[in-house]
Design a protein around this nucleic acid. Structure first.
Length: 550
RNA sequence: GGCGACGUAGCUCAGUUGGUGAGAGCGCGCGAUUCAUAAUCGCGAGGUCGACAGUUCAAGUCUGUCCGUCGCUACCA
């Protein structure tokens, strides 16, 4: 296992939340929370973690939303960026930097990557025809064009897809296309765009992917499938007002870098921004150019090709930067069988959830259901059940019963470890083994199994107490009772280490008694120390008060 | 339509490269216990591993077909 002597830099790269609307529990369970658990563990294991992300502030859905609300894209972005920051604070997501793609730094880094790929010939310029709105004086994104669907004759099909029959469309296929902006008929007009020559990277990517070990099967299969179908060059500029400027003269006004190209660069630009903020401009290289560094990308499965194909292609083209060590993409959390979606009202948003659940309780319930291998069905009922029947009953109650007994029958003093017998030591040995096993699981990003393993430690301590019956010993053999309770408290200190990455708030509540968790091992409680009258770590959820129709 | 995945106890899910009688948590039943947020501990019932066919000495695990569910299909990212 890792320790201080062979500390490894670990880049924890987290999907950039799209500032087009509230994020929901699927996003939280899919990317942000697993990343936080992983990062917290790596820090405790003594590794140098850099965990970065930020709000993705560009892209069509944001402009669409702004238009429909009669406001500006930056208003939309500000609103949701603020909401996200509030979400992260309430959940204690431990970013080293949470920024946005709207910074000057991000533009500069994006331009640098663009120009390097351009100079190396991996980006070239091509002409194509696109719909142009004469009245509005602008080119139209596909979804700004409406018309009659050629398949089902639905009258309000969008240029990218018909909502009625579900087929994907090209805008040229629409019968009687009209611009959503001016309601006039758009005309096809020639426009020039830059393309990323993904086809240049077919071979190196294929080779790179076939050497990946320890990756999740669905991630590898999906990525290899993409490559086998053949990689197509993709346009990386758009005729838009909202986005990052194209850093080349003479391509024409009103062109911006397409958001999929610049958003992934955020991982790099955020690392550089963090470096500048923290004094040493070159610190980012520790995670990006040092071959011993690990970079782990936490994303949902819908983002897989961008992180296993496109971003690696850009990195290979750029040269000298680390490719992803692992992309443990999660599957979906589903609600009533369907993918969570805030816009369609499926499932809860993070903000809504935090209004009814304590942060640690929510973190526990989601972590216990991380969709690591397959889509996982989640309901409000299930979240309550996880909290009340597992978290509170097994762990919260364990802490409370032990502290209460120490408070009531040991003079509120942490007992001495001196008189421990073989049974006591066997319990602690078992807990220490669990701590090691949990470390292995988390390091493999098997976070759900690791949490269950940690909770099994709490069950072992409960079993130990039931067998020792310190509440009886306190009447017949107070000294032995104290030893048992001291042993149980020490075991709790061990279990707490396992749960610390998952439950930062309630772990912190024990700091007064046990001291802070500073490393990945059980610390013996300070005997003789006085404790306060214990309070429960968690509140039970009263389902009847929730009033939620999931 | 094409591609990817999923379909294992009432529920949510695990099941490395095919190999002793199929697992966990919760729920349920019985018993123990009463220190603790009516919490805990022990035991138990419960599954022809979606269907059919095939490969093999041996398949939940490989192959094919079918049924069902979900997602993607490149201008959402």
């Amino acid at each position: 296992m890792t320790n201080k002597n062979d500390s490894v830099p670990v880049l924890v790269a987290v999907a950039w939340p799209y500032a087009s609307g509230s994020r929901h529990l699927g996003h939280l369970a899919g990317a942000y929370l697993p990343a936080d658990v992983f990062a917290r563990f790596q820090r405790l294991a003594g590794n140098e973690v850099l965990m970065v992300s930020g709000s993705d502030v560009h892209g069509t859905p944001i402009t669409v939303r702004a238009d429909s609300e009669g406001t500006t894209p930056s208003d939309i972005v500000d609103r949701y960026h603020k909401e996200f920051l509030d979400n992260w604070e309430k959940l204690a997501i431990s970013w080293d930097l949470y920024t946005s793609t709207g910074t000057d730094n991000h533009s500069e880094v994006t331009h640098d990557v663009f120009m390097k790929l351009f100079e190396k010939g991996h980006i070239d310029k091509r002409s194509s025809e696109q719909f142009y709105d004469e009245d509005a004086g602008r080119f139209l994104p596909d979804r700004y064009i409406e018309g009659v669907c050629p398949h089902c004759e639905y009258p309000e099909a969008r240029g990218d897809q018909c909502e009625n029959c579900g087929r994907t469309l090209d805008p040229e296929e629409l019968i009687k296309p009209i611009s959503k902006i001016s309601r006039s008929e758009p005309t096809l007009k020639e426009t020039e765009h830059f393309y990323l020559r993904l086809s240049d990277f077919q071979e190196p990517l294929s080779k790179w992917l076939s050497g990946r070990e320890g990756w999740r099967n669905h991630v590898l299969n999906f990525s290899k499938g993409w490559i086998e179908e053949g990689l197509h060059d993709r346009a990386i500029t758009r005729d838009l007002d909202w986005g990052i400027e194209v850093p080349v003269e003479g391509i024409g006004a009103g062109k911006k870098i397409y958001v999929w190209f610049e958003a992934v660069i955020g991982y790099l630009s955020a690392a550089k921004e963090w470096s500048k903020n923290n004094g040493s401009e070159d610190d980012w290289k520790k995670w990006w150019t040092n071959p011993a560094s690990r970079s782990v990308y936490f994303i949902g499965k819908d983002n897989i090709p961008f992180h296993t194909i496109i971003w690696p292609a850009m990195l290979i083209g750029y040269g000298g930067l680390n490719l992803p060590s692992n992309v443990p993409a999660n599957q979906y959390v589903t609600f009533k069988g369907g993918k969570a979606s805030a816009s369609r009202g499926v499932g809860l948003t993070i903000t809504e959830s935090l209004e009814v659940f304590e942060a640690d309780s929510l973190r526990y319930a989601l972590a216990a259901s991380f969709p690591e291998q397959s889509d996982t069905e989640l309901t409000v009922e299930e979240i309550c059940r996880r909290i009340n029947e597992e978290l509170v009953a097994t762990w919260g109650n364990l802490v409370n019963r032990v502290l209460s007994m120490i408070y009531n029958s040991c003079d509120a003093q942490i007992p001495s470890p001196e008189l421990r017998n073989d049974e006591d030591l066997a319990l602690l040995k078992g807990i220490d083994q669990i701590i090691e096993l949990v470390a292995e699981e988390i390091d493999k990003v098997e976070l759900r199994a690791a949490l269950q393993k940690g909770m099994s430690g709490a069950a072992e301590v409960n079993a130990y107490l039931n067998s020792m019956e310190p509440w009886k010993l306190s009447k017949t053999d107070p000294e032995r009772a104290a030893t048992v309770l001291g042993t149980a408290l020490s075991a709790i200190a061990g279990v707490r280490v396992c749960l610390a990455p998952y439950l930062p708030f309630s772990t912190g509540l024990l700091n007064d008694v046990l001291g802070p968790v500073n490393s990945w091992r059980r610390e013996e409680p300070e005997h003789g120390k006085k404790i306060e009258k214990p309070k429960p770590l968690f509140k039970k959820v009263d389902k009847s008060l929730l009033g939620l129709d999931d």
